[in-house]
Amino acid sequence: MLAVLLLQQGEHGAGGPGGPFALEPGLIIWTWVIFGVLLFLLWKFALPPIVRLTEERERKIKAELEEAEKRNAEAQALLEEHRKLLAGAREEAHALLNEAKLVAQKEREDLLAKARREQEEMLERARREIHAERERAIAELRKEAVELSLAAASRLIEAKLDDQTNRRLVEEFLASLEKRR
């Protein structure tokens, strides 16, 4: 079939520039020239207005994506810093609290110790006072007893009584003492 076609074409091609199967060099060059000119004109003048909007949009989207990426990284860094700060603050607060607790504990112990000391002192004083009071009372009593004895003795002397009378007098005196009490 192909051979027949080629044969026929050969007969036919004598006058014209050749059939569909002929590789006419002139036509090849013309194709390159025409296609080249078309490509140049399209590339230079016709395609840019059509594609421009899309390319601009693509560029914009790309730029926005990059911007977003940058912002994201920034936010991430900020967050990290924030977190670090927060952790630091918490630690500090913890330390402060601990310190305060320690101080309070010390204060309380100090106060307690002071109170105890004061109490002790007061007790001591009271004890001392009681003791003194008693000493004084005893001394007083003794003085009283001496005075009484002296009084009694003076009465005895005054009465110049006998033994019996003496005895009775002393006894009476004692009784009167008893009564006076």
């Binding site: 569909p20 199967f21 002929a22 590789l23 060099p25 036509l27 090849i28 060059i29 194709t31 296609f35």
Partner: peptide, 10 residues
């Protein structure tokens, strides 16, 4: 495009 020279050139 039905000519072999043209398609060969392309």
């Amino acid at each position: 495009t039905g000519n072999l020279a043209v398609t060969a050139a392309l």
